[in-house]
Nucleic acid binder design. Structure first.
Lengths: 147, 147
DNA sequence: TATTGTTATACTCTATAACTATA
DNA sequence: TATAGTTATAGAGTATAACAATA
């Protein structure tokens, strides 16, 4: 097992890994509709953020196979959270678009999660300095994740 | 939808939520054995960290039903990562204990994840001040998650 | 022929309901 | 009677293989 040259960096990594998993697990519990699975919700988030997608693009983004994504999309189509329309330019393709009610479910879940986290932060009575640490850390974490 | 009195706290919460989910998703990809599911791995982590548990205790910690946990435990027992032994004090109960090979799998996964994160941090060439921000933020995040 | 989406089939994780053994 | 664990059965997400339609 290789080690980085800076042992304090190893310690920071371990701390951050543990804290990230625990907080993510805690926040994931907050969802507008408990009846919707993580897989379904993730698809709606992609459609809301990145707009209309083909089935293949969705499968690639979520790193699942096309048949798997097809089943997930089927459920979301039946519940009315997205619609399929044929691509007229390339008729092998199907364009998948989020509906108004789908976008509302995503927005509501985000509101719930933000609210739960804001409540938790408020309860800890963090100082302005501590809040600033969290903001700066958030930016660093995103750089790590998106590297 | 209620709002906290401090709008800068709301913003910190949103930033932190996004960053946490993205980093967790990224780190979860690193696993010693891809053949083991998240559910199975989570059970081994509990057993390693908190010692021998009953089936009911495992189900409660993972917030799944007893039959669900029973199936997960069955698989881990078949693969030799844990053992069941009857509780002699209360013979309705079964004590579930991690084996040496189970503990080794957990340790290996933790090593992989720490290494991946340490590599990512090293690549960003963070300053000592930035690493300190991540360490302090990690402590705050754990307080939030465990509140 | 290659690509895109879909269907067929099977395996895993989840749940609820029913059952067994023990307290 | 109540509790701990298990089994029976079913629903949803995953996969691979095979198929249909289109480029």
């Amino acid at each position: 097992m290789p080690h980085s040259p800076d042992p304090s960096l190893d310690l920071a990594a371990t701390d951050l890994r543990l804290a990230t998993f625990r907080l993510a697990r805690r926040l994931r519990h907050e969802r507008a509709l408990d009846s919707m699975s993580d897989a379904q919700f993730a698809v709606l988030v992609i459609l809301r953020q990145h707009g209309t997608q083909t089935l293949g693009a969705l499968a690639e983004r979520e790193r699942v196979t096309a048949p798997s994504m097809n089943r997930t999309v089927n459920v979301l189509e039946e519940t009315g959270y997205l619609v399929r329309t044929p691509d007229e330019q390339d008729r092998r393709r199907v364009l998948i678009e989020i509906t108004e009610s789908g976008a509302e479910i995503v927005a509501e879940t985000i509101r719930l999660r933000d609210h739960a986290l804001a409540e938790a932060l408020a309860e800890l009575h963090l100082s302005e300095e501590e809040l600033e640490i969290l903001r700066q850390a958030s930016a660093l974490m995103r750089r790590v994740a998106e590297r």
